[in-house]
Design a protein around this nucleic acid. Sequence first.
DNA 1: GCGACAG
DNA 2: ATCTTGTCGC
Length: 235
Amino acid sequence: MRITDTPADWPADEAAARALQDELRGRVDPDDSGPPPGTGHVTGLDVAYDDERDLVAAAAVVLDAGTLEVVEEATAVGRVAFPYVPGLLAFREIPTVLGALESLAAEPGLLVCDGYGRAHPRRFGLASHLGVLTGLPSIGVAKNPFTFTYEQPGPQRGDFSPLVADDAEGREMVGRALRTRDGVKPVFVSAGHRVGLETACAHTLLLSPRYRIPETTRRADALCRAALKEALTRT
DNA sequence: GCGACAG
DNA sequence: ATCTTGTCGC
C-alpha cells in the first residue's frame, strides 16, 4: 500500500494555516459555472481516521448525477497532516483526499464535501479549499451547525432556513439548513467553488432521495472506512 | 479565563 | 472523527 505524503510546504502551525486561508479565499469563484443539478458526474469525498496509528484513509466516489449509479471509486491512505482545529479541518483532510481524486480516471464533475464551504470563520471551508485547489465546482454539506445559528426550517423535505454567521467577518447569511427528509434534522449546505447556494441546495436534494445524507457522502463514508480497516490490516 | 466548535 | 448493542418507530 502506498502512503500519500503530505506536501513539503504544508502549513506547520495554525497561524500559517489561517494565513493561507486568507490568501486563497480570494480565488473562490462565487458564480454558477458548475454543472446543472442532475447532469454529469458528482463525486462524494470523505475521510476516516486512526489517530493511534496516525493514519487517514480518503475515498472519492463518482456517481452519475442522473441515476446515482456508481461510476468509479478510488481511495488513498496518508499520514495525519494536521491536528483537528475547528476552522482548519481542511488541512487535516486535503492531502489524502487529493490523493484519492488524482487516482480517478473519470471526470469528478461536482465535488460534494462532508463539511462546509463558504460557511466558515474566514469564509473558506473545506469545500471552498478543495474547489480552489482543483478548479472543480464544489459544495459543502455538513451534518452539524458548527458555530452558526439558524431557525428550525419547515417540516417537509425541501424546506430550508438561513444559516447565519456572526463573527469577525460580520453578520451574514452563509448557507442554509436544508430538510432532506420529512421530519428529520436538516443538513447544512453552503456554496463552495463555482456553485451558488441555491444551486448547491438543488444538488443536495437530488442527491438525497431517500436518506438525510447525500448518496455521495454515504458512499464515500462507507468506502473510506473500509479502506482504513484494510490499511490497518496491512500496517 | 470559560465554553463552543465542520470532521 | 471515534469508543459501541440493542432497540423504538415508520
